[in-house]
Amino acid sequence: MDLLLEIAQQVINGLVIGGIYTLMALGMTMIFGILDQTNFAHGELYMLGAYAAFFFSMVLGIPYLVSVCLAILVGVLLGLMYEWLIFRPVRGKDPLNAVIASLGASIFIWNAALLVFGGAPREIPTPFLGEKVNLLGVSLNVQRLLALAVTIGIILALYWWIGKSRLGRAMRATAQNREVAALMGIKIGRVAELVFATGGALAALGGALVGPIFLLQPSMGLLAVGKAFIVVIVGGMGSVLGAIYTGFGLGVLESLTVGFLSSAYRDVISFAILILVLWVRPQGLFGRTGERGG
């Protein structure tokens, strides 16, 4: 019974982490699926989202939940900046140019953050961290539950939005064929702005939600982007559903590895899965060759 409880505990922790991976991976997979560009600087959106929440709640004294909303706004603005400064200038060129440009941006941003925020780990205060609820013997931290609930809600909303709304349809049309979509009167620049704003908002939300659980560090984006890449590729680049399943799956797997094996193996196992999938099924678990977008 104790073992079962331990497993349940680890699975829930894993779902929280997995939700954050999913939030990041969704933005990246949309950027890849719709615009054919790879964003290596996505982790910095997550990092800056966490620091934005820290700034609003800690420095300005705004309540935590309002700070999270403000952090999302910051994420939207940052996403737009990414589109204008990094990705639009290299659109239509060799796709590797976008990888290199965003890599440069990533190095620039996290080192600038190191200079501005300092290397010392920081903590976002939240009223929910200390509180625990007991569910069938499993003790659950309210902040983790909140993060999980918000993540799932947002993912469902996004899924509905891409599938049903007019804007979602424009995005999917662009993913299928950019030229024809443009001929049909879809403004590609607008779609790109929308995609990056959404990606920025999701990543910043992720950062603001885990900020209170883990410590904030300027380098936190680098590891997170590695994990999000694993999710995006294993799930199938451009596949929204694949990113959701794989994101939560990877989080649970990592959490179980830490709980029952050793934390040293956590990252090795994740990257080994990446290489294995690239080896036997390069299109990803949920991707079909030639398939793109949600």
Binding site: T38, G226, M237, V268, P282
Partner: peptide, 28 residues
């Protein structure tokens, strides 16, 4: 060998993964 089938960004990310694995092995 395993990366050859991959194209463009996939290949780049796979090499990123390999680099991380080597660093983690050296580390652990």
């Amino acid at each position: 060998y395993p990366c050859l089938r991959l194209k463009g960004p996939y290949f780049a990310i796979a090499t990123f993964g390999y680099g991380e694995i080597v660093r983690l092995i050296l580390h652990n």
